[in-house]
């Protein structure tokens, strides 16, 4: 109360500024964010950064097959810092391109799943009643089965392909978002500002998407960071099992699977390096997600 009395203006940061400020207080989270930025940059710029195009067969040389890390190509000056696979492909380039596909699948499926889940969740919470209970029954039914089992059934149905993996991931993940958005929208729905908006005679659609939805975003962000790491891991697992992306567009998971056959003969680099790239990506996202969860949780606010 003293602040009002003294009449000095109190500077209040915008919510996004406050969150950014709190986020950088944790050095581990900042490292995670930098790592993730690096990974994303490599994925986006892979065609320009990679020493060779791993899928242009003219650039591969079978004489260079299965070289350990650090060896030089037998005819060109090129050094294979992470070794080559059985076809003489530079693993560093293959990993960069693989990262591209892994992240593409994860982000596209994330965007689609969030969109579908949010719309369904807001509708369920806003209209309630029959619609709500039917939607939530479906969500509960789906969540009672392990995601990997559902994804396997779907890919057995759809066949291999980048678009099909994305579809399977969307179907597996929408339910998490629908449930998250619904539960926070249920809380927001009963607040005064929604009543006020109703009294102004605004149409339902406007209330749902302009008033209700923005207030459901923080929990959604937390779930999304957890889920994108899950999506990357699930895609890698499916591709490893041979039901995910096709051989022509290998993600990190498929690279690991290809190298797995050579693991026992001691050619560890073919599968270990793609594995490290995968793990670094997942850990970086988790570090960011952990910090975001703390920063966005209103109960932990001072």
């Amino acid at each position: 109360m003293t602040e009002i009395a003294t009449n000095t203006p109190v500077r209040i940061d915008s919510p996004s500024k406050r969150i950014a400020k709190q986020f950088i207080e944790d050095p581990v989270a900042v490292v995670g964010l930098i790592l993730f930025g690096l990974v994303a940059l490599i994925a986006i710029a892979a065609p320009w950064l990679a020493p060779q195009n791993p899928y242009d067969l003219a650039q591969l040389n079978i004489m260079d097959s299965s070289l350990p890390p650090g060896e030089t190509s037998f005819d060109t000056e090129m050094t294979y810092w992470l070794g080559t696979d059985q076809q003489g492909r530079d693993m560093l380039s293959a990993i960069m391109y693989g990262l591209r596909i892994s992240l593409l699948v994860a982000t596209v499926s994330l965007a689609l799943a969030i969109t579908i889940g949010t719309i369904v969740g807001v509708f369920a919470a806003f209209f309630g009643g029959r619609l709500d209970s039917i939607i939530m029954r479906i969500v509960d039914l789906q969540l009672s089965f392990p995601a990997i089992l559902i994804a396997l059934i779907l890919l057995a149905l759809l066949g291999r392909g980048v678009d099909k993996v994305i579809m399977a991931l969307v179907i597996v993940q929408w339910a998490y978002y629908a449930r998250t958005v619904r539960s926070s929208a249920m809380v927001e729905r009963s607040k005064d500002y929604i009543d006020a908006a109703r009294c102004l005679g605004l149409p339902s659609r406007r209330i749902m998407f302009r008033h209700l939805l923005p207030n459901c975003v923080p929990p959604l962000i937390v779930v999304a960071t957890v889920q994108i790491a899950q999506a990357i891991a699930l895609e890698a697992t499916l591709s490893f099992l041979g039901v995910g992306v096709p051989i022509t567009e290998p993600s990190l998971g498929l690279l690991i699977a290809n190298g797995y056959d050579y693991l026992l003969s001691g050619n560890y680099w073919i599968s270990v390096f793609p594995g490290i790239a995968l793990v670094v990506t997942i850990i970086a996202i988790n570090l960011v997600g952990d910090r975001l969860r703390d920063v966005l949780n209103p109960r932990l606010q001072k």
């Binding site: 790491a229 891991a233 890698a236 697992t237 490893f240 099992l241 998971g253 690991i256 797995y260 693991l263 026992l264 001691g266 560890y268 599968s271 270990v272 594995g275 995968l278 793990v279 997942i282 850990i283 988790n286």
Partner: peptide
């Protein structure tokens, strides 16, 4: 436990094979 939680299962398995078998 964070690692056990977030790393893909098949990759953990491969590491086990690499370390204890190979």
């Amino acid at each position: 436990s964070l690692l056990g939680f977030s790393l893909p299962n098949f990759w953990q398995g491969m590491l086990l094979i690499l370390i204890f078998a190979v």
